[in-house]
Amino acid sequence: MKYIEKQAPPAGLTAYCRTPGATYQGLKKKKALYKVVKEALANEQGYICCYCGRRISGKGDTQIEHIFAKGTPVYEEMQLDYETNLLACCDGGKGQRSQGTIRKEDLFCESVKGSDILPVIPLYRECESKFLFSEDGEIVGVSKDAEVTVKLLNLNSPVLKNMRKYAIDNYSLCPPADWGAELLRLRKRDQAGAYEEFCFVLESYITTYIHAV
């Protein structure tokens, strides 16, 4: 999980929120505006999933996530709150599930979160320090709230674990000449405004096992 610094909402969303009776379902029906909001969310996150860090494009592989479930009455008024409740999330493996390549129990992120409230969310500045990653791609929560978050999002799904391990293994095949410079690269966006997929996983690996500073 990588800290997300929220930006101002798109002007079109602000205008729509002033419409009497505005709802998230109503936003989805405004397809052009819905696409704008989804792209804006993905862009401010550097085109990685708000929870697992997989690459997202802001288009078909991306969905708008509500930190506080939109179907829960107590959070109904937050369903369009861009700055405190809306994020961009991957499909949680649903595409692979529909193709029969992964099991239902291997789904992750929003696909399994439901209406649960996460103890650790990417809007907390300290969220990145709450998790460590082993060389085999396993995510470990360093506190009880982080452990609960890992479980609620199924972040140790074999699918995610294998993807993280593959990313880490690339360093064994082609280690950088300067680990410090690699850390700096991982902390920056590329020219397209995107972070490296699983950038925070790789940062954790380098600082934990390579001891770069």
Rank of each mutant, 00 (worst) to 15 (best):
Y124Q: 15
L13H: 07
G180A: 05
D91G: 08
Y166V: 08
Q79N: 10
R18M: 15
P9Y: 07
P119A: 02
C199E: 11
P175L: 02
V112K: 01
H211A: 10
Y75K: 06
Y209A: 05
G92E: 07
K188F: 03
I64M: 03
I117R: 09
R187T: 08
M163T: 04
N154E: 00
E197G: 08
C109Q: 04
I121F: 03
V148C: 10
I117L: 13
V140G: 00
A167Q: 09
E147F: 01
L118A: 07
Q45I: 03
C127M: 10
G26E: 10
Y16G: 08
D145P: 14
N154T: 02
F68T: 04
C127A: 13
D145T: 14
L118W: 08
E128H: 06
Q99K: 15
K59A: 12
D116G: 06
Q99N: 13
A11L: 14
K31T: 15
L132N: 12
K2I: 11
G93R: 03
T149S: 11
K31D: 12
E203H: 03
D91S: 10
S129R: 11
T62H: 00
A8M: 13
I139V: 15
G93D: 03
V74N: 12
P9L: 10
K104S: 13
E65C: 05
T62G: 01
F200E: 11
K30N: 14
C109H: 06
K165I: 03
Y205I: 14
K165W: 04
P175Y: 04
C89L: 05
Q191T: 14
V142A: 06
E105A: 12
N156A: 05
S111G: 07
L184M: 08
T207C: 09
L155N: 01
K94T: 15
E197W: 07
T149D: 03
N43V: 10
Y205F: 14
I168T: 02
P158A: 00
D190Q: 08
K104V: 12
M1W: 05
Y16S: 10
T101N: 12
G93S: 04
K113N: 01
M78S: 12
Y3C: 09
M1K: 07
L183E: 05
C89N: 09
I117E: 12
R185V: 11
G53D: 02
P10T: 12
D61W: 02
G95Q: 11
G58V: 04
D136F: 03
